[in-house]
Amino acid sequence: MSGTARTLALDGELTIYRAAEVCELLKTALAAPADLELSLAGVTEMDSAGVQLLMAAKKSAMASQRALRLIDHSPAVLEVFEMLDLAAHFGDPLLVPAAPH
């Protein structure tokens, strides 16, 4: 474990359309020698490409012995996580909104 955590907020679509862009963003963020917190509060839409990005980021972080935490999952993210049963994989606490729809 190294350094204090940095926070990166992802927002807008986390989909194939922005996959390459977000990929670069994550690479840059992970280049710094610190744990990373990804805030997903602003994610409005997520597709398979988005899921892959998060998985790949998690793998990279683990490979370099750092932690990658996902926080503030937006409803769009929660929906996908629930459908694919991914909560356990990422292992981050999910904050379920009080009145889920």
Binding site: A19, A20, L30, A49, Q52, L53, K59, S60
Partner: peptide
């Protein structure tokens, strides 16, 4: 899924 460095995001 490869690690981020090797990932072709598309």
């Amino acid at each position: 899924v490869p690690p981020l460095e090797a990932l072709d995001a598309e």
